[in-house]
Amino acid sequence: MRRSRSGVFARVILATGGAYFVTSSTLSVFCIILFASGMPRVDVVALGMMLGFILYLCLALWVFSSRRLWQVLTMFVLVLTAENCIFFVIGH
């Protein structure tokens, strides 16, 4: 399968780094929300970890399978911004 070198590079970066940061910030928000709703914090973090790897896997596969890379990129940026906003509103 032919792909441009820069496209491949962008996909690899997006699948490892991008998906990682999206997962990480999603997990933080997930933890804060569940913790605020009264779950013990050990449980919250342990549950978040287990789900986090699955989310990361799905995101990474999505990056490689999607045909239009800019869609993925926009989605990632949107999610990251939204979650950081939530983080700032609730987390502090």
């Binding site: 997962t23 933080s28 933890c31 804060i32 914090r41 919250v44 973090v45 978040g48």
Partner: peptide
Amino acid sequence: FPSNVKAVY
């Protein structure tokens, strides 16, 4: 995922 832990600890 250290940020996950840092969020609540």
